[in-house]
């Protein structure tokens, strides 16, 4: 077992009859890092993640988590105490209170202690006596997260942990994940919030119809697929002089100018300001758009949001 990698997925395939949910996925996750699985609905994220925790038996291929094979009953038994899991599809007993569930799950892991502290970590400190069935969607997610991390696991599998959470909840989760990372935990998470993946993940894997189509650090993905930065501003009496023509692609609509910058936009911006000053023109309503992971994601997954009006034309 490679000690540097906490999770190794090798040529994973999962078929349901004719449908191939996962077609040959391989990746590894370094110990102490956060790995993000991104992809459109039905891409195969959940199938991949659940194959890592022994819920789904792969059609072929192998998985190792901390050196254990989750498809093997004995290995899974040794793995269970060391992993924390938040599932996309699950439920908890409706008439159980938050406190009871935290305490009972604590018992599963040999913990004895007060659930109040973990509850307040996820912002449920004042809801210990609420029934699980009566929690709001986001509160249920927080409870699920608390149940995943209260036993201080070495590896965490979080399937859309922030879906349905409010902004506050999401920031709480980000803080928790940051704290877990600095204490050396390994994590795989799936999400549809691109900025969340950009913020949290050391490495991102984009999955498309069961295959990996891109895999790198968020910054590298943006640099490679995000496209160019653009600068937009309004300036009366401005014109694109020869000194500016080489900066990139220019377009203008009346007084509004757009430059799709070639290379670093800061440099172009300085040039534009200098040139405008020399012309005695004031620049207003300036926008600098840097490519984001979202741009990269759209470029990679080949998704163009169709404009219904353009079809009519």
């Amino acid at each position: 077992m490679g000690t540097a990698d906490a999770i190794v997925v090798d040529r994973l395939v999962k078929r349901y009859g004719d449908l191939t949910a996962v077609a040959d996925i391989s990746f590894s996750v370094r110990r102490g890092s956060i790995f993000g699985l991104l992809g459109r609905n039905g891409a195969g994220k959940t199938t991949t993640l659940e194959s890592c925790i022994g819920l789904i038996a792969p059609t072929s291929g192998t998985v190792r988590v901390l050196g254990f094979d989750p498809a093997d009953r004995r290995d899974l038994a040794r793995l269970r105490p060391r992993m924390g899991v938040q599932l996309q599809a699950t439920s908890l007993p409706e008439k159980a209170t938050v406190g009871e569930l935290l305490r009972l799950y604590g018992t599963y892991y040999g913990l004895r202690g007060n659930p109040a502290s973990v509850a307040s970590r996820v912002g449920l400190g004042d809801k210990l006596d609420r029934f699980a069935g009566k929690l709001s969607g986001g509160e249920q997610q927080r409870l699920a997260l608390a149940l995943a991390l209260q036993h201080d696991p070495d590896v965490l599998f979080l399937d859309e942990p922030t879906s349905g959470m409010d902004v506050y909840g999401r920031h709480v989760l980000w803080r928790e994940i940051g704290a877990l990372r600095s204490s050396g935990k390994t994590m795989i998470l799936t999400t549809h919030y691109i900025e969340e993946a950009e913020h949290l993940c050391d490495e991102i894997c984009i999955v498309q119809t069961g295959k990996i189509v891109a895999r790198d650090t968020p910054a590298a993905l943006v640099a490679r697929y995000g496209g160019d930065a653009s600068i937009e501003f309004a300036a009366r009496g401005f014109s694109v002089g020869a000194a500016l023509a080489g900066l990139g692609r220019w377009a203008h609509d009346g007084d509004r100018y757009t430059l799709v910058a070639r290379g670093e936009p800061g440099h172009a911006l300085a040039k534009i300001v200098e040139y405008a000053n020399a012309l005695g023109v004031t620049i207003a309503a300036l926008d600098l758009h840097r490519p984001s992971l979202e741009d990269a994601f759209l470029a990679i997954t080949g998704e163009r949001i169709e404009d219904p009006r353009s079809e009519a034309a």
């Binding site: 040999g110 913990l111 877990l180 204490s183």
Partner: peptide, 29 residues
């Protein structure tokens, strides 16, 4: 709880006991 607190909190972790789980689970059921 912060990361530092997490790391230093005395992890009182007695052996997991299926018997204890059985009693706790039965009571909750």
């Amino acid at each position: 709880m912060s990361a530092a607190a997490l790391a230093t909190a005395p992890l009182e972790r007695p052996r997991r006991s299926q018997f204890r789980m059985l009693l706790a689970q039965t009571r909750m059921n």
